[in-house]
Simulated scan of single mutants.
Amino acid sequence: MARLPNLPLLHSPWLPAAGLLFMRVAAAVLLLVIHGLPKLLDWSGELQRIEDPFGLGASLTLGLAVFAEVFCPLLLILGIGARLACLPVLGVLLVALVVVHPAWSLEQGQFAWLFLVLYGGLALTGPGPWVVKLPR
């Protein structure tokens, strides 16, 4: 089996930190731009389209989705309460996959499953060492 060359860069202690930073910022920006901001910026239009699987009302359901898809990704980008910020996102994803779209094939739900993997992984690992520190 071929071995990687013994380059110091490949064994640098900061690579895991850089990987977690990249993963958490990329996952958060994707969710924010693709799902969160469109909901927030077209609130009235989204009220007409949003599924309400638990009968909470369109406004509350949309508010919960916007919280999970706008506020939580912003916290994740900063690394503030990152593990906790992943939980509402995971909740919205599970509701979408299990309750709202249970008939989706793996192919149809692939992006939701990828987000589930990313946010689940970040909930398990945490944000890494490179985070914004709040003053005490």
Rank of each mutant, 00 (worst) to 15 (best):
A103V: 08
W43A: 06
L116E: 11
M1I: 13
L87H: 03
F67S: 02
A123E: 05
G91W: 08
F111W: 14
L134C: 04
E51K: 05
V131W: 13
L134G: 02
H11R: 15
G128H: 04
S105I: 05
C72W: 00
V98E: 13
R24I: 07
E69D: 13
P135V: 11
A112C: 11
A82N: 05
G128W: 04
L84I: 14
Q108D: 14
R83V: 05
V132A: 11
L41N: 11
R49F: 10
G121K: 03
L62N: 02
G121V: 07
I50H: 04
V89N: 03
I80G: 01
A28F: 11
P16D: 04
G126V: 04
M23S: 13
P135Y: 11
V33Y: 01
P38Y: 09
L76M: 15
V132I: 09
G63L: 04
P8S: 07
R24V: 06
A18T: 10
E107A: 15
I80L: 01
L21H: 11
E46A: 14
P13H: 11
L10K: 05
A17K: 12
L74W: 07
V25Y: 08
F111V: 12
Y119D: 00
Q108H: 12
L20H: 10
G45M: 12
C86P: 04
A96M: 06
F111M: 13
V92W: 07
P135R: 14
R49D: 08
D42L: 10
L118I: 12
L60W: 10
I34G: 00
P135G: 09
W113V: 15
R83W: 02
L7S: 09
V25A: 04
V29P: 09
A96Y: 03
D52R: 01
L64H: 12
F22K: 00
T61S: 10
A27I: 05
A28L: 08
P127T: 02
N6S: 12
E46C: 09
R3G: 12
L106Y: 11
G36R: 03
L75T: 08
C86G: 08
L78N: 14
G81P: 05
V92Y: 06
V29S: 08
L84Y: 00
L116I: 13
L122D: 00
G128E: 05
L118E: 10
E51Q: 08
L56H: 07
A58L: 06
P16V: 01
P5G: 15
E69A: 10
F111P: 02
L97Y: 01
D42N: 14
D42Q: 14
S12L: 15
P135N: 10
F54M: 10
V100M: 06
A17R: 13
L10Y: 06
G81W: 06
Q110W: 14
V98L: 15
L37A: 07
C86L: 02
L122T: 00
L7D: 09
V66Q: 13
L56C: 05
L78W: 12
P127H: 01
V117I: 14
G45V: 07
L78T: 13
L76H: 01
A17I: 12
G81S: 09
W43V: 07
G63V: 02
L32W: 04
L9M: 11
